[in-house]
Design a protein around this nucleic acid. Structure first.
Lengths: 197, 197
DNA sequence: GTCTATACGCTGATAGAC
DNA sequence: GTCTATCAGCGTATAGAC
């Protein structure tokens, strides 16, 4: 496994990388600052020199994915027609999950992270915006079920070891096809890539 | 929220109920025996009189759902034809998720629980049996993606607060329809219930 | 059966030497 | 910037009184 690394010390990006690894494997509550420090080959105090608290590390880990999600919401809401809104949002969240697999997973599943994110008013509203774009203004029960299954399904697929061999583009294409089927959208013409929709 | 309850002491089923509640809200690592004891209005020592360790409590919480999953695998494998195998397995896991929503969620998402379960050889094999029944012996990439999305999707739907108002039968029906669409199975005739397939 | 009391390691976090 | 040393508090778990 990952032995102790001494080169580079507690540089911020090394801390965040180690933290993400450990959060994925043990959950946020199951990860101590000691474990992060050990992974980097430094002491806890060195980590505390860069981040004032454990919570600050968690925020720094999830921030990039959340900013991307906000961007996806903006892009989707800017589309004039409903069908384009759903398509844009789906392609956006699929891209997001493929590129930030493990961050997406800890945001969606770790209770400590969920609390943190949902406790933030802007981010709580962001979740609702995404849901509204995906399910529409007055969704029937089946659409609601599809939308609910989407996030968890994408997360599970992004993490599944059986899919780890697929390259990103193939995974993205299959995920988008499957996600559209889940949401009862018509299949996309083969030639187009996910980014074009 | 749930105040301290003094009646009933640390009876095993009360411990497990409180533990499941707390595991769902805070994760296993985020739940201490002190929290469980407080929820019941007893001391930690009283809880330890019934269960020898925290791990033993975790096992007792997840055991019923895992036994059901083994039953689902047996039933599905007993079907003579592939199409029936998939249908039976889907109906089984949908039933399982509807009836054990929160237990399914902590098994699938909590790293501490996943480690425990996957470390057990029989249970690790069970996971593979279910996957083989759902995806078939030589699945193409898209089927693999669908199967991967299934577990996480069902879990997310089972926990989604927007779906909490649906009664169990309605939820079960929509979940099964959506899950079959996900796995590219033909829609089920309306009259049939999930249990019949 | 449930309690009080206790053991001892590890937690997140701080102070100050180099 | 990273270290050593230290803190109070909480973690799991145990012993023994009632």
């Amino acid at each position: 496994m990952a032995g102790k690394e001494q080169r580079g010390g507690a540089a911020p990006e090394r801390v965040l990388s180690a933290a993400l690894n450990l959060f994925s494997r043990h959950g946020v509550s199951g990860t101590s600052l000691q474990m992060i420090a050990d992974e980097l080959g430094v002491t806890k105090a060195a980590v505390y020199h860069r981040f004032q608290s454990k919570e600050e590390i968690v925020w720094a880990v999830v921030a990039p994915a959340l900013e991307r999600l906000a961007e996806v919401a903006r892009e989707a809401e800017a589309q004039p027609r409903r069908s384009r809104q759903v398509g844009t949002a789906l392609a956006g969240v699929v891209d997001l999950v493929v590129e930030h697999r493990r961050v997406s997973a800890i945001i969606l599943t770790d209770p400590a992270v969920s609390r943190l994110v949902r406790g933030h008013p802007v981010l709580y509203a962001l979740e609702e915006r995404i849901n509204r774009v995906l399910a529409g203004p007055e969704p029937d029960a089946e659409t609601l079920v599809g939308a609910a299954m989407l996030s968890g399904g994408l997360m599970a697929a992004g993490l599944d070891p059986r899919l780890a061999d697929l390259d990103d583009d193939t995974l993205r294409r299959h995920l988008l096809d499957t996600a559209r089927r889940l949401m009862r959208l018509r299949p996309l013409p083969r030639a187009r890539t996910a980014a074009e929709f």
